[in-house]
Design a protein around this nucleic acid. Structure first.
Length: 1040
RNA sequence: GCCCGGGUGGCGGAAUUGGCAGACGCGGGGGACUCAAAAUCCUCUGCCCUCACGGGCGUGCGGGUUCGAUUCCCGCCCCGGGCACCA
């Protein structure tokens, strides 16, 4: 390890490198094995009396790290610091910030202890250690191979852990205290893992393409790259200040050319493959071409000429192959958002038909756009959820979005030809009394009879005019028109009318349904409105009124038999199986699985995104750019604003299309040099986040997106049934069906093509809660700055006027944001970290309460005082052995703190550390805490409050950072008391307590309980019916 | 409407999952030290009755299982989130 930055003594007289002994001091440990007390990683840091490694303690060993980067602060005396206004306010019970700020200067600062842990000292410690960690590369983690592999052999035997945060969009507003909740959580966990002997990869990057940067750039007339880089720099500064232990060499931004080169490369892999449904995986299109050559029949709809492969020309063949690709161009109904000037994915449109970003209206229109065939993976995306350690909430959202339904396709005959429907209830086929086709159904024209033509045409065009928004807001009243045609029910030969109605959607199933009003509520409502027959075919319970609503529950089939098959008496499940078998035998239908998931609309008409590595030849068919052309760099532009409009019928115009010198290019793609037209759309901002976790593992690799060996080491399956992936992924719940579904899809494509060994990108997902805060409105309903509101006798006042309190998201609009920088200045980053972790389990939302932060500040001050003499600064620990009470509490604390760490319930760890600290201040009011106990306290605290822990560790005589120090361990023997106090209850009510030996058996417990005065009094004269004595738990007497 | 979460003091939250409800912290009350303050420390703080001793009630509500329920079962209520004419 390189030596640290210059180290200053507190009085500024002499500088020594960290851990270097002052002349009159006992030398500090100099070798690694000495310093780590038994040797990390496999060795455990033993606590308790009698362990071999004694700490080193000398009064003159007063080391304080000061940032090398801020030499100006080196000569600040404590007194000077105290006049800078930041100190002296945090420690007064009951103080409010504003009062503290008002008395910026503390009277007679020289009287204050020189070594008090106050805000100024905390910041000095923090910036000093942040600088040293950075200079030492403390959090650099080696890879098995490649550029970052130096030093891997030394850690190769450790278990690995990949701890990941959802990387942020670098917003211009900067962070508020709600943002880093998850980052602090992963940092605490990663630090704990390092101290328990793991090789931990942990870093942070930026998801920087997207609309806000572009919109802001347009507004301020700067290039989005400039804006993005400024925001990233600011965010890095804010995060650095929190002491987050990242391997910064691994940081990436999705907007880096070196990064999006590989985003484009992955797109080419997707474009270059097709989904083989027989094998259930993606394969390169070259293999498809070989199979087509060998006689494979092209997939339905991919060969409009109908000619055999051998007779197709090059362009026609290209068209056939393009129709199979996982990335394809298609004219489909898309979400057109004129207000943003771009199309959007289904996932980016809200339920009421508006854009998730900007809240502009979205219209469905057919347009030719890039699609990714995520539907090919619907089954695997659904099934593999079972392999994941995710919350049920997120899994169910994904299941819901994928929307798998099993049922059957059934074909009815009509005069216009066969009409196929999808149904999940083929068991109710005998109850089908009419049919409905969607207004957009291709058979509508053919089905419509002359006398119905006017009515149908009017209905269809009215439906087309209405946007999805209108259809939704009009409620669920059923409308429709009879087409004039009849269809034949294949199971009973009945003629039933065919209607056109907009409650049937073209985009799901076949766009046509068989209607069973007795057993489907929507069909029931339509049948009521149009006076259609309702034939029950499932026996409903007596209390069900068939005239009020459909019976959709279970039951036995009735009225369901023809000459060949009878469902009568069978359950729903049996009836389904029976009728599907019959339909398949007759060629009238097939069992079918249907999904709600649609293919992913992947193009955007925006500037600030990855350009597609695609060109179009003379035949208009898309072709891949050769890999040698990557990265295809986003060309510079003066005016990159999108063409926005409020006109629903406007046309998308990608900004890149305006750079005529860029849009055409001469290339040789195998047919000699020809002129090609570039794709001018860009990728959606989800592209980079679909794979960034892989790039962290090998950020400098120029040969591959990630070296397979590095991927296998960090993300590969750990056992035969393991899907592999990141060991812990922490982020907000808002990405349940966007990023998390897209990333899984890309990862599975890369898996199929052999680029990764893990089936899933994120093995374990943890959703951190959101920090919310109070906000206040005045009598006009306007928000007032929350930090200027005061509480007086339960009322809230702003500038003397009463205001109304609300509770909501923290942010600019509610004027209730609190910046982490402000907390760092008032208390230090360690206090902020502790406060954020103390609020509750990481997955729970919580209110922000600035007045409560001080509790954690006081805790750190107590910890500091346990170890450091506030007046002169030397450690005030002793070489004494701890007494048994202290040792026992220490072991219990260690056990509980470890448990909290492992379950991500850091709040309980902090509570236990507080208890230990309070015990030490009470037991050793005048100092003299045994050094071994002090060291364990510091190590316990280290993942949570790393700066103060490092500083105390150094002051206790250790040279090396404690980052890789072994975390304290406990011994079971110390967890049990010799005697325990147990409750004694009579008829379930606790009446007394007895003290017995911890291992007392049931008889001994009962005897001790009966001997208790209070219990004896209660039992006197009563009949004891039963005695329950549970050793180690309690005694209960049941009396008459 | 359907699907997921979740309801514990004034507040954030603990409780090894069937065995002392309320750890720890904030807020609040009282006190020590001090000329006074700051800093620090001690102490009380679920609700109700009682001068007190003590007693009663308490984990959203109502039932049930059990010697014993915050924990398990049944039925409701409320809050948060997601989906929503998906056949």
């Amino acid at each position: 390890m390189p030596s640290g930055p210059p180290v200053r003594r507190r009085d500024g007289t002499a500088a020594h490198p960290a851990g270097t002994a002052t002349p009159d001091a006992t030398p500090p440990p100099t070798t690694l094995s000495e310093a780590v007390c038994g040797g990390h990683p496999t060795g455990r840091h033993q606590i308790g009396p009698g362990r071999g490694c004694r700490g080193w303690s000398a009064p003159t060993q007063v080391l304080l790290l000061v940032s090398a980067a801020t030499p100006g602060t080196l000569n600040d005396s404590a007194a000077e610091r105290r006049h800078q206004g930041g100190s002296g306010f945090g420690g007064r019970r009951g103080d409010r910030y504003r009062e503290a700020m008002a008395e910026a200067t503390t009277p007679n600062a020289d009287d204050l202890p020189q070594h008090r842990y106050d805000a100024a000292l905390a910041q000095e410690i923090e910036s000093g250690w942040q600088a040293r960690w950075e200079a030492d590369g403390t959090f650099h983690t080696p890879n098995p191979v490649g550029d970052l592999s130096e030093g891997f052999e030394a850690v190769a035997d450790r278990p690995k852990q990949y701890v990941l945060d959802m990387f942020p969009y670098p917003s211009g507003a900067g962070l508020h205290v709600g943002h880093p909740l998850g980052y602090i959580g992963t940092d605490v966990f990663a630090r704990y893992l390092r101290m328990t002997g793991h090789n931990v990869v942990h870093t942070m990057g930026y998801d920087a393409f997207g609309l806000p940067a572009e919109q802001h750039a347009i507004a301020t007339n700067t290039h989005p790259r400039k804006r993005t880089e400024d925001n990233i720099a600011n965010m890095e500064r804010q995060l650095r200040r929190l002491g987050l232990g990242y391997d910064r060499r691994r940081s990436v931004s999705t907007t880096d050319e070196a990064f999006y080169r590989w985003t484009q490369w992955i797109f080419l892999q997707i474009f270059g493959s097709w989904y083989d449904t027989d094998l259930g995986r993606a394969r390169p299109v070259a293999e498809l071409e070989a199979e087509l050559e060998a006689g494979r029949i092209p997939a339905e709809g991919t060969n409009p000429t109908g000619k055999p492969w051998a007779e197709l020309d090059a362009s026609e063949r290209r068209h056939v192959v393009n129709g199979h690709r996982l990335a394809y161009l298609a004219e489909v109904p898309v979400n057109w958002c004129p207000g943003l000037g771009t199309v959007l994915a289904n996932e980016e449109v809200t339920a009421d038909g508006r854009s998730e970003r900007g809240n502009f209206p979205v219209y469905r229109r057919p347009m030719k756009q890039w699609m990714l065939r995520i539907t090919a993976y619907a089954d695997r995306l659904l099934e593999d959820l079972e392999l994941l350690d995710w919350t049920e909430a997120i899994k169910s959202q994904q299941r819901n979005w994928i929307g798998r339904s099993t049922g059957a396709d059934v074909t009815f005959s009509t005069d216009a030809g066969p009409l196929t429907v999808f149904t999940t209830r083929p068991d109710t086929l005998f109850g089908a009394t009419y049919m409905v086709v969607a207004p957009e159904h291709p058979l509508v024209g053919a089905l419509t009879t002359d006398d119905q033509r006017d009515a149908v045409q009017e209905y269809v065009s009215a439906a087309a005019r209405r946007s999805d928004v209108d259809r939704q807001t009009e409620g669920k009243e059923k409308t429709g028109v009879f087409t004039g045609s009849l269809a034949t029910n294949p199971v009973n030969g009945e003629s039933i009318p065919v209607y056109v109605a907009d409650y049937v959607l073209m985009g799901y199933g076949t766009g046509a349904i068989m209607a069973v009003p007795a057993h489907d509520q929507r069909d029931f409502e339509f049948a009521q409105a149009f006076d259609l027959r309702i034939v029950p075919v499932i026996a409903a319970p007596d209390e069900h009124d068939p005239l009020v609503q459909a019976w959709t529950g279970d039951g036995v089939a009735i009225n369901s038999a023809n000459d060949e098959v009878s469902l009568d008496g069978r359950s729903v499940a049996e009836a389904k199986a029976t009728i599907i078998e019959w339909l398949e035998g007759k060629g009238l239908g097939t069992g079918k699985v249907q999904y709600k998931l649609r293919d992913w609309l992947f193009s955007r008409q925006r500037y600030w995104g990855e350009p597609f590595p695609i060109v179009f030849g003379a035949d208009g068919e898309p072709q891949a750019l050769p890999e040698s052309e990557l990265p295809l760099v986003l060309p510079p532009m003066e005016d990159f604003s999108p063409k926005t409009s409020d006109d629903e019928d406007s046309e998308p115009e990608p900004p890149l299309g305006r750079i005529t010198e860029w849009t055409t290019v001469d290339l040789d793609l195998g047919d000699g040099v020809q002129s090609y037209r570039r794709e001018t759309n860009t990728m959606p901002n989800w592209a980079g986040s679909c794979w960034y976790e892989l790039r962290y593992l090998d950020p400098t690799n120029t040969e591959a997106l990630v070296d397979p060996e590095n991927e296998r080491y960090w993300m590969g399956p750990q056992s035969p049934d393991d899907c592999g992936g990141v060991d812990l992924y922490v982020g907000g719940v808002e990405h349940a069906v966007l990023h998390l579904l897209y990333a899984r899809f890309w990862h599975k494509v890369l898996f199929d093509l052999g680029h990764v060994s893990s089936k899933e990108p994120f093995r374990r997902l943890f959703n951190q809660g959101m920090i919310q805060a109070f906000a206040y409105t005045d009598d006009r309903g306007f928000y007032v700055p929350a930090d200027e509101v005061v509480e007086v006798d339960g009322a809230y006042l702003f500038e003397g006027q009463p205001v109304t309190r609300e509770y909501g998201k923290m942010g600019k609009s509610l004027k209730n944001a609190v910046a982490p920088d402000e907390m760092c200045e008032r208390y230090g980053a360690d206090t902020l970290r502790l406060y954020e972790m103390f609020g509750g389990p990481l997955d729970q939302g919580r209110p922000w309460d600035t007045t409560a932060v001080v509790g954690m500040y006081w805790l750190l001050q107590r910890v500091w005082r346990v170890i450091v003499d506030e007046g002169d600064g030397p450690p005030r620990v002793s070489d004494d052995h701890p007494d048994d009470d202290t040792t026992r509490l220490l072991h219990r604390t260690v056990a509980a703190v470890r448990d909290g760490m492992e379950t991500l319930r850091f709040n309980t760890s902090i509570a236990r550390i507080t208890e230990l600290t309070n015990h030490l201040t009470a037991t050793y009011p005048d100092g003299g805490v045994p050094q071994s106990v002090a060291e364990d306290l510091v190590l316990l605290l280290a993942p949570l409050a790393p700066h103060i822990a490092e500083e105390l560790w150094a002051r206790l005589g250790h040279e090396a950072s404690l980052t890789y120090q072994g975390y304290p361990t406990f011994e079971e023997d110390w967890l049990v008391d010799a005697s325990v106090e147990l409750p004694v209850s009579v008829n379930g009510k606790v009446r007394s307590r007895i003290v017995v030996a911890a291992d007392a058996d049931a008889d001994a417990l009962e005897a001790a309980a009966r001997a208790d005065d209070k219990v004896a009094a209660l039992l006197d004269g009563a009949t004891v019916r039963k005695v329950i004595a549970v050793p180690g738990k309690m005694v209960n007497f049941v009396v008459a």
